[in-house]
Design a protein around this nucleic acid. Structure first.
Length: 535
RNA sequence: GCGCUCUUAGCUCAGCUGGAUAGAGCAAUGCCCUUCUAAGGCAUCGGUCACACGUUCGAAUCGUGUAGGGCGUACCA
């Protein structure tokens, strides 16, 4: 809608135009401060310029009003325009707010180590990534959601050890001395029991079999993680296992070397990536003295594989604690001969927790980890998703655990759900048939109704903007304000029994479509009915 | 020390590429259920947009500096 207006304006004015939404709706649907920037070059007052511009819009039927106010040029869209658009949306609900696009995107997110179930800190990146994914799909992008499984390295060995320790203490009843680091949690119980079934009890005391145990257990952990994700409506298209990549390491090193002889070099018995020349703080070790590749080596092979698979754009969503890692991966991508600009790394900032006003440190060792599944059980996946989707992902976030757990009706998600449910209730109580409602026209509304429809039809811009700016919180913000408009309208106007019942109901259907589409993009199902809250 | 990032109402956060009087939710106070679900509506209270300087017709927004917080600064992932 905005786009159409914008291209229209550019056609008429013959230049780029900044279009904004006036704070006060009485100024119109859209406004532009164009006259201010023209004032300087034309050496005329903005008021005068705006007046002249306004008159050049005579006879354009998309607008009902174009007027100059204090130098601003304000536009109001015409009834015909809004009626046509709203009716089209109701006739083509699946197309509403969609676009055509054939850009291929690979989105990697979550990628938590397979050493335990997801905790609350993972939720943020998970919800953020999945929301971006849904937005992109809706906008027509060919997007693939991928999970990189770090099933190699120390943390996997640690998983094996942790299962052994748990079993020794809790199943075999032995005295256990705990080392510096190990994992802890209820999930180890079923893994330990499963291990006994699979391998026999001997494996629990055999230090040399830790790796074997861990490699078996990681699949079980991945199942837990997948279940946590699925319970929050988060699904992946592909999983890539770090362990499967190292066989390609030599080929990838050769590739970098062929592109740039200085990319990789040996020093002190180790192999280094010359990332400093590409803007990193230091060069980085990729193969240690004992020939074991570092984590970076795995990531280089992984990114090479990503680029070989041939996407137009790559998005990684990482925890903010990995931000120092970006330059070295970009350096590697360039040495591999690819355009590092195609790789976009977004950081999901940390979630810090409070308990009774005091900082609460989750520690796997202390066993006080707040699991994502705890929160989903407590408040539901919808509420969890809404909380994280409505916060800007790149600012740190503080949560009081108790408040998080008891978030019920104070969560704005219920406010939005209720708006949708209210519409459904009215529709079902009306004696009018769907056909009668749909044949009405969305014209002749008073100002309040007109504004409500305009608000509902803004969804496409919000969706596009939320994705392009990677600021998914714009969508929940919008839905909340649309729900507020609806609630107010509901209170002010008793619809059933009015002369213009049919077209008001049709208007509400447009609002419902917008709410439902928007919620769907957040991975939340719109509700047609809500049970009354008990006091 | 260096790099990145953040600082807006009592709390949690919005505020789009500079634009019209600084916004929401929660909290606090008051009002509205014989009306399509009160999980709702209305009203009040609450801000030197961390601070300073600069750019501009115009700054919460851009630039520089200062203060404070977070993260990073691994041959850990």
């Amino acid at each position: 809608m905005k786009q159409r207006v914008q291209t229209l304006l550019q056609g008429i004015l013959g230049r780029e135009v900044v279009l904004e939404k006036p704070r006060d709706r009485s100024f119109g649907h859209f406004a532009t401060p164009i006259a201010f920037s023209l004032a300087k070059e034309l050496r005329k007052s903005p008021m005068l310029i705006a007046d002249e511009l306004a008159s050049s819009f005579d006879g354009h039927e998309e607008f009902s009003v174009v007027e100059a106010v204090k130098g601003y040029l304000n536009f109001r869209l015409s009834e015909n325009f809004l009626n046509e658009y709203g009716t089209w949306a109701l006739d083509n609900p699946a197309l509403f707010a969609t676009q055509e696009n054939n850009t291929k995107i690979l989105l990697e997110y979550v990628s938590a180590n397979p050493t335990g179930p997801l905790h609350i800190g993972h939720s943020r990146g998970a919800v953020y990534g999945n929301t971006l994914y849904r937005l992109a799909q809706h906008l027509g992008y060919d997007i693939t959601a991928e999970y990189y499984v770090n099933d190699a390295g120390n943390q996997i060995d640690l998983l094996g050890l942790s299962i052994q320790l748990y079993a020794q203490e809790n199943i075999l009843g032995e005295e256990v001395e705990y080392p510096e680091s190990y994992y802890r949690g209820d999930y180890l119980d079923s893994l330990a029991k499963g291990a006994i079934e699979n391998f026999g009890k001997e494996i629990l005391n055999d230090e040399s079999r830790q790796k074997e145990l861990a490699l078996w257990a990681k699949d079980g952990v991945m199942e837990l993680i997948k279940k946590d994700l699925a319970d929050a409506n988060i699904v992946f298209d592909t999983f890539v296992y770090e362990s499967s990549l190292y066989s390609e390491w030599d080929r990838v090193m050769d590739k970098m070397h062929a592109n740039d002889a200085k990319a990789i070099y040996e020093k002190d018995g180790k192999i280094w990536l010359a990332s400093e020349a590409k803007g990193d703080d230091n060069d980085r070790v990729v193969v240690r003295e004992d020939k074991r590749p570092t984590y970076l080596a795995g990531d280089i092979v992984y990114h090479n594989q990503k680029f070989e698979r041939g996407y137009d754009h790559y998005i990684n969503i990482w925890g903010a604690d990995h931000h120092g890692y970006i330059p070295r991966v970009e350096a590697a991508v360039e040495y591999l001969g690819y355009d590092a600009k195609k790789l976009e790394t977004l950081l999901a900032q940390m979630v810090s927790l409070l308990k009774d006003g005091e900082p609460y440190k989750m520690s796997k060792r202390a066993g006080n980890v707040i699991l994502m599944s705890d929160i989903v059980d407590e408040i539901g996946a919808d509420a969890l998703r809404f909380i994280f989707a409505s916060k800007k992902s790149d600012t740190p976030l503080e949560f009081d655990i108790e408040q998080l757990k008891k978030q019920d009706s104070s969560n704005p998600i219920f406010y939005i759900q209720y708006a949708h449910a209210r519409i459904q209730t009215i529709i079902s109580k009306s004696s009018l048939s769907k056909e009668e409602i749909m044949s009405a026209s969305l014209k002749g509304f008073d100002e309040d109704a007109d504004n409500l429809m305009f608000d509902a039809l803004l969804l496409p811009e919000v969706v596009e903007d939320a994705f392009n700016s990677r600021q998914v919180q714009k969508l929940p913000d919008y839905l909340q304000s649309l729900a507020a408009s609806l609630h107010k309208f509901y209170y002010d106007v008793r619809i059933i029994g009015r002369d213009d019942e049919a077209k008001l109901l049709k208007l509400l259907l447009v609002v419902a479509l917008s709410l439902k589409t928007g919620l769907g993009l957040l991975g939340i199902q719109a509700k047609d009915f809500m049970t009354r809250k008990e006091d």
